[in-house]
């Protein structure tokens, strides 16, 4: 589904990514891990078409997506949520989800179409809100939500695009430990219900990474250090100490 081959990204003399190759198949939940400065954010920006790699190729559904930008990428079927909570502060919960649905249905330029009377958009938005446990807060302004709900809304609006592949940049960052597993369970259930085929996440919380991933890609100093199952990664002492910062016992 997503194929990254020999990607290199230079910022001046600094090499952020060095010959990075990875492949994401349909049905996979892949986590990208690595210490700060490993190149995770650069890799995400390259994969989501925001940055053009210095060399190498990125294909999504066999189409070259190097530097195509977020709008065309969304139309192709890839969505993204952000590390820092990214919401529309003055929109209601339902409206924030409707933005994605309106965009997916190609109705974003309809000038005289009453949104409130569009049952298709409303029903789909309510369905997404319900999946993410936000139905009771559907009329609340996004800025008034608690932090955990803001994070859920951020992810929910990306899910509302019904992408084939979704990239979650630290989906549990900034929320309490108690809320982390709840968020992840909601994300996994929602992806099954909405037919999302692949999830790629960047995550620092190793409990979340090992608990939910089918495969883990470990980055270190811009290079792929390991690309293996959670069990194999946990068994690899070198990877654990270099990437996670602790040896296994």
């Amino acid at each position: 589904m997503l194929r990254v081959e020999g990607v290199r990204k230079l910022y001046g003399d600094f090499c952020a990514l060095e010959e990075v190759s990875l492949e994401i198949q349909a049905g996979e939940f892949v986590s990208i891990i690595g210490p700060n400065g490993a190149g995770k954010t650069t890799l995400i920006n390259v994969v989501t078409g925001l940055l053009k790699p210095t060399s190498g190729t990125v294909h999504f559904k066999d189409r070259d997506i190097r530097g195509i930008g977020p709008v065309r990428l969304a139309k192709l079927g890839m969505a993204r949520s952000f590390q820092l909570v990214t919401i529309f502060p003055e929109l209601s919960v339902l409206e924030a989800i409707q933005v994605a649905i309106v965009s997916r249905l190609g109705r974003g330029t309809r000038l005289f179409h009453a949104l409130a009377a569009d049952r298709e958009v409303r029903d789909q938005a309510l369905e997404v809100a319900e999946l993410f446990g936000l139905q009771d807060k559907r009329d609340a302004r996004a800025r008034q939500l608690p932090q955990g709900d803001k994070k859920l809304l951020d992810v929910a609006s990306a899910f509302a695009l019904r992408p084939e592949c979704i990239l979650l940049d630290e989906p549990t960052s900034g929320v309490s430990t108690a809320e982390k597993n709840t968020i992840m369970q909601i994300v996994v259930q929602a992806s099954k219900r909405m037919g999302i085929r692949s999830i790629i996440q960047v995550e620092h919380d190793m409990d979340i990474v090992f608990g939910y991933s089918d495969r883990i890609v470990a980055l270190h100093q811009g290079k792929v250090l390991a690309d293996a199952s959670p069990a194999e990664i946990q068994a690899d002492e070198q990877v654990m100490s270099m990437v996670v910062g602790r040896p296994t016992h």
């Binding site: 003055e90 409206e95 933005v99 965009s103 309809r110 005289f112 179409h113 949104l115 409130a116």
Partner: peptide, 10 residues
């Protein structure tokens, strides 16, 4: 109040 208006506010 149209989808266009919603996109503008977003």
């Amino acid at each position: 109040r149209s989808p266009f208006g919603l996109c503008l506010r977003s």
